[in-house]
Simulated assay, not measured.
Amino acid sequence: MSSTLRLKIAAAASLLAVMALQGCATLTGSDQQEVAVHAILDHREVSGVGCVLSNPAGRWFVTAPGLVTIRKSKDPLAIDCKKDGVGAAREVVASQFGIGKLIGNAVVSAGLGYFVDRRSGAGFDYPATLTVMMRPLSAAPTAATEQGASTPVY
């Protein structure tokens, strides 16, 4: 094999490698995302709610309503919120691979960039606003409920 042919093959391989990485969100995007967290109880937003967001990439705390920067992942994001004397909530939100990133990976890298993005989480996004529906804390039983009395529903 001539040195000119080897040089051409090496140049072509280098060009293909660069093209494959251009569609890769790991290199062109961020592995972090800012999300807004809101807590709702009885159709009203509740303030001062402590929330913990977690996925395999880490755990983050925010007081809702508020903003927090999280690390992206291909895995779902769990949101656990609680306010003493008010209520609690647990929600799970799936991550989505961006369609633009998918098309870029398919066209530029024949889909190879998708696997890099999947591993790093950079190609995935969570919704920008996370709204959790809180459940009120159950009230302590009263004497009437302990005796089996019921409240009629109209």
Rank of each mutant, 00 (worst) to 15 (best):
A89E: 08
E34Y: 00
L77P: 08
D31S: 06
A78Q: 10
G48V: 04
A78F: 03
P76A: 15
P76K: 10
A94L: 11
C51G: 07
V52S: 13
C51D: 04
C24T: 12
V35F: 13
V52F: 03
G50Y: 07
T63M: 08
A36C: 00
W60D: 14
A110F: 02
S109P: 05
R90W: 11
I103M: 12
S30N: 10
R59K: 12
P76Y: 06
P65G: 08
R90P: 06
V86F: 08
W60Y: 15
R90L: 13
D42N: 12
R90G: 08
G87Y: 02
R59T: 15
N55Y: 08
F97T: 02
N105S: 15
A20C: 09
Q32T: 05
F61D: 07
V62Y: 11
G104N: 10
V108I: 13
A110H: 05
V93Y: 02
A78D: 08
A64Y: 04
D84P: 02
C24P: 04
E91Q: 12
V18A: 15
V52C: 12
R71F: 12
N55S: 12
L77D: 15
A57V: 02
G23A: 07
V68Q: 13
N55F: 14
M19Q: 11
T28G: 00
E34Q: 13
Q96M: 04
F97M: 02
C81Y: 05
F97R: 00
W60M: 14
P65C: 05
Q22L: 14
L27M: 07
D75Y: 11
G87P: 10
S109Q: 03
G48H: 00
V68R: 11
I103V: 04
D80G: 05
A17K: 01
G50V: 04
E34S: 07
V68M: 15
G23S: 10
V46H: 01
A110E: 03
N55Q: 12
T63D: 12
A106G: 01
I40S: 07
L102K: 00
E91M: 12
P76Q: 03
E34R: 09
S47N: 02
N55L: 15
S95F: 05
S73V: 03
T26M: 09
S30D: 09
V86T: 11
G50K: 08
N105P: 05
I70L: 15
K72N: 09
S47W: 05
V18Q: 12
V107R: 08
G66T: 13
A78E: 05
S54N: 10
E45K: 10
D31A: 06
V37A: 14
I40N: 03
R59C: 14
N105V: 00
T26S: 09
G100I: 00
G85D: 05
I103Y: 01
V68G: 14
T63I: 13
C81I: 04
G66V: 06
N105R: 03
S47P: 00
